[in-house]
Design a protein around this nucleic acid. Structure first.
Lengths: 251, 251
DNA sequence: ACAGGTTATTGATCTGGGTTAAAAACGCTG
DNA sequence: CAGCGTTTTTAACCCAGATCAATAACCTGT
């Protein structure tokens, strides 16, 4: 498994990327600029760092790194995970374009977990001290940061309920429904999509064994709810899948 | 709000409560005023509503209520819980003096869960729109809100790991260590304390059966790590209890 | 202080999903 | 396009903790 930090491996020229502004960003309505005026977005844009794309398997954040800022996913997908003292890994989230990583680091000043690219991904770094300054000047921005953090809390609490009270089938069903919803919001098909993560990531996230995920896929296919070939998912019966999952749409 | 019998359990006359200001609050260094200047605390104080104490079993928040503000616990303890579509309850947290409830409601504008007093408790309501205004004016306050919300995220992610990867014994051990730590920070003994919640609340929170909690208590007592009579806890061997728990101190 | 309800403990049994094992299907890389 | 590590699937067995059942301790109001 490759596991290098961002430094080498720069395949693409940075210049083209560098010219993308928040104002023109395809996903600005899913990201911090939501509800900001054009001029305010332009202001936000000035503090955003757009680095090179992060390759699959590369770490965007290492646990223990000093907190510098939050990261907005522009394209691709990122997984975040924490590691307990005894070495157990727990995936805490999968982040899609428009979603923001790193709010958990504010309280301690240190990133409490890791962030790793599931595929080649573009991310924007937003230095937090400058974001705070700007938030004090732009009420809509401050509010959006609060909203985003609040959403993260709701997401985590929802997952907590899943893990504590739901069966393996329900957890996996919810997971698919939630992903479907999030792809849909990004203008992609919510019927057909590609899982950006491995089975082992899904199982880790949901607190199940990899084998259980395989069994559940077979089971949901038998029931005619979904069709999954490798990582390609097709949802055949969203209604009943949602019902099974508890009609949940967390996040 | 209804006026109820205040006879029992009220050591101080009601008027005294009403006059308590943030500046004089015993727990201001655990609450939003942390790191604010005296004048800033005074400013914050002007927007805080201090209602009557909430009695044991009373709801402070009902799921679905329109979001008005966040609540700081001044004394006593509060549990928060969500209820899934199929009626399953999941306790999402236990809040002690200085801790703040309601950040999960910002994103949707509606409280997503319930908050119920575990014992007679005093809470301060802080209207959120006014808090936002003030946060834009007082950088330290804005930062403290971010820190508090971030802490909530870390707490939830930590619990997620507990629930997914740890054994029943480790979960319960962590729970005790965490409570001990939090009581200690509040100037109470971290060796001896009283559990504010029922066994069933603990089991629900940790994703276990009530019976399992009873058995774990018996087990930890046999191992000489703790002594628990009813709700009175004495931690006899913090070192080994922490080790068993994974030396975690979540929150 | 006692009746009736709630909460806690203890014991016996059951089961969902973990664990182990091994084969099958990928997907690199040279 | 062959060889090899990785990921996924399938199958057989097992166990931590749930569930069921019954008793005991406890409030709380009258």
């Amino acid at each position: 498994m490759l596991s290098q930090t961002v430094s080498s491996n720069m395949l693409k020229p940075a210049n083209a990327k560098h010219t993308i502004r928040c104002q023109d960003c395809r996903i600005k309505q899913l990201c911090l600029p939501v509800m900001l005026a054009e001029s305010e977005i332009a202001h936000l844009d000035t503090i955003v760092h757009r680095g090179r794309p992060v390759n699959k398997g590369q770490h965007l954040i290492q646990a223990g790194d000093e907190f510098s800022g939050v990261f907005a996913v522009r394209s691709g997908s990122i997984k975040t995970y924490t590691v307990s003292i005894d070495g157990l890994e727990q995936i805490t989230g999968f982040y899609l374009p428009g979603e923001i990583i790193g709010f958990d680091a504010i309280s301690s000043g240190v990133y409490p977990g890791f962030a790793k690219a599931l595929e080649t991904s573009a991310v924007c770094e937003i230095p937090f001290s400058r974001l705070e300054q700007l938030a004090a000047e732009i009420p809509g921005l401050q509010h959006q940061i609060f909203r985003t953090m609040s959403q993260e809390i709701v997401k985590d609490q929802d997952l907590m309920l899943q893990l504590n009270k739901k069966s393996a089938e329900q957890r996996f069903g919810s997971f698919l429904v939630n992903l479907s919803f999030r792809f849909g919001r990004r203008g992609l098909s919510s019927q057909r999509f590609r899982l950006p993560m491995a089975r082992s990531d899904i199982s880790n996230y949901l607190g199940l064994a990899v084998e259980t995920i395989s069994r559940l896929i077979a089971q949901l296919q038998d029931e005619g709810l979904v069709s999954i070939q490798k990582r390609e998912v097709e949802i055949l019966d969203m209604h009943n899948l949602s019902k099974l999952a508890g009609t949940n749409c967390h996040n």
